[in-house]
Design a protein around this nucleic acid. Sequence first.
DNA 1: GATTAACCGAGACGGTACGTCACGTCTTTAA
DNA 2: TTAAAGACGTGACGTACCGTCTCGGTTAATC
Lengths: 195, 195, 195, 195
Amino acid sequence: MVGTDTPRRGRPRSADADEAILAATLAVAGEVGFRSMSMDVVAERAGVSKTTIYRRWSSKEALVLEALRRAINPLDDVDLGSVRADLETYMAELGQRMHHGKMSDLLPHLIDVATQDPQLRCQLDDYVAQRRAPVIAILERGRARGEVRRDVDLALVADVVIGPYVYRRLLTGAPLDGEVAAELLGVVLPGLRPV
Amino acid sequence: MVGTDTPRRGRPRSADADEAILAATLAVAGEVGFRSMSMDVVAERAGVSKTTIYRRWSSKEALVLEALRRAINPLDDVDLGSVRADLETYMAELGQRMHHGKMSDLLPHLIDVATQDPQLRCQLDDYVAQRRAPVIAILERGRARGEVRRDVDLALVADVVIGPYVYRRLLTGAPLDGEVAAELLGVVLPGLRPV
Amino acid sequence: MVGTDTPRRGRPRSADADEAILAATLAVAGEVGFRSMSMDVVAERAGVSKTTIYRRWSSKEALVLEALRRAINPLDDVDLGSVRADLETYMAELGQRMHHGKMSDLLPHLIDVATQDPQLRCQLDDYVAQRRAPVIAILERGRARGEVRRDVDLALVADVVIGPYVYRRLLTGAPLDGEVAAELLGVVLPGLRPV
Amino acid sequence: MVGTDTPRRGRPRSADADEAILAATLAVAGEVGFRSMSMDVVAERAGVSKTTIYRRWSSKEALVLEALRRAINPLDDVDLGSVRADLETYMAELGQRMHHGKMSDLLPHLIDVATQDPQLRCQLDDYVAQRRAPVIAILERGRARGEVRRDVDLALVADVVIGPYVYRRLLTGAPLDGEVAAELLGVVLPGLRPV
DNA sequence: GATTAACCGAGACGGTACGTCACGTCTTTAA
DNA sequence: TTAAAGACGTGACGTACCGTCTCGGTTAATC
């Protein structure tokens, strides 16, 4: 049985407020964009005071990041029996989200702010790890099946798969659809085969 | 008559001011970061009025971008005779710059702003193309030498090489030193070989 | 049964808390001034919660006013046998307190707030009456001795004596030391003599 | 001919803005009271940004004080030929204003804030001096005519006249109408007569 | 040489959002 | 029922930065 370590004194923070704030954040941001979203408007929409927001999040960006993390469904960790099939599925989904997802719209902004805000940096790292995890899992299963060389650094391979998506999305604007994904795998997979 | 398109009446713009502003931009940004850099401070440091700055650049970001382009030496397009050797050289240099360079410090910010500023978007695209060009050149030479399959999309391969750098730099913080670069090539190059 | 009107149920109020709050009020106010004194700080200093304070006093000003009334010793009602001697003694003491006393430091603030708070207005009136009482007493004794005309309004005379102190203290900053007090009496007393 | 000492560089401050701000201050304050008047509302009403206000006045109180000084017509320095007549006229007017004037409504507040704001303190002193000046002038003329003793401190007498008004207005609430004013003079004037 | 057009510095300006503060109330658990 | 702790709504505060505008004054090319 997990103990509620600290009995907590004083009035507890309202869980409703948490919910309302995060919901309002997504709603307002969806309408005007995160960049133009103001804390006053979020507070008003949430039926909450700014104080209450700042008591929970240290800055606008911290709030936005958490709102997004809640809004994001984790990528399913499908297992179709081969590295190629698994990665194709994953990459299709990733491509979708990179193109249409809310997160990718403001990734640059979050990264930017995280540069000078260690706390935000941590939260962002969590998010990234969560995104990378499925790829690593796929590769590990592949290795167990003998599809992947033992001596290859799986973390690096994961970055080779995800990196181009981020790069294209943020800097070149080029898409990474299913066809291109297949070609990418055509380049990468041969280098993973044992011997 | 050499085509100085417009003869221009009135007092010509001061070239000194251009220099001073760009220098001040780099100096101030180096001290407090681009995000915290204010135009007022840049103007003061350059011994120039804000009017003079805005007469030349349309926004803070446009200024910053030009300042950076000046500060960046192009990556040399070395030719050592093999794709592997060329890419290793290129990647070593890229890793260096990604880690210590001024540009990478504010890439996120520029990307962010470019989201809503088409003009900046263009300038940024130029920069990116300039960075990608050497990789494509290397791969084309490799193809000419028969080292690289004819049917592979070189632009995609370039993104596979550069993507992980950007990704690690912006999101995971993991380094990409010479050793890792070699391993990356170990994964990617086999997939490029003909037949 | 002796009339403790309400038998009171539940936990009784802590008398210690009263003391601690009033002491903390004077202490904090003495350090930062009443205007900058915050209720949170007082509560913390007193080792008491804000709730406990507000259960006893309806507002910051009400608290402050009571704290001051406790801190103020009444002016002694000396009787030296002549109006001049009595007033000189009274005015010397008044001058002292006006200059160094805590009360005069925040009179303006209390007055200000009393403008819109009838309850505080009453408490303040009590305080004022208490200050004026000795002067009226002095003048009445003088009248009984035949030193003062029967047809003069003693309340008005009291205001003529006290008024300049308040005025100087609040608005001009000029002092009212013994010498000046003597001169003031030199101006006022002749007009009080019978016939 | 008076030289415009400083040639002034940069864009000059808008005189219209000054006017608009002060007018808005009086208007808004007249509607909701000075205490409830907010700077945002004043700015909006004046068609001006808050920055522009704070560039001219360091605080809400400083602004209010200047607005009032502009709104206040100086007390006329009537000369009816006798100290008694002149003072009666002055006191009647002073009594009026003390009762109905805007200034007296917020004197306490200004005094209070001036306690911790030296700049405001100065402005307030100016105002006070301006109010006292007529009384001193009256007394000096009386002295020139031989109505007033040479050895009496006129500044003190002025305070004896004005002090009770301030005192009553701020602390006791008692009025000082014409009748009472006459009685006050009945008390004070005998003490001023030569020999 | 006078005119004119564009430049330059200084700095005021409108706008928009920021994050903070204090008051007095409310909601918990503990005594 | 009171107490301590502390979250909460309200409402204002003063600041920061952006990009624009308005001055007086300067610097060429043109007339």
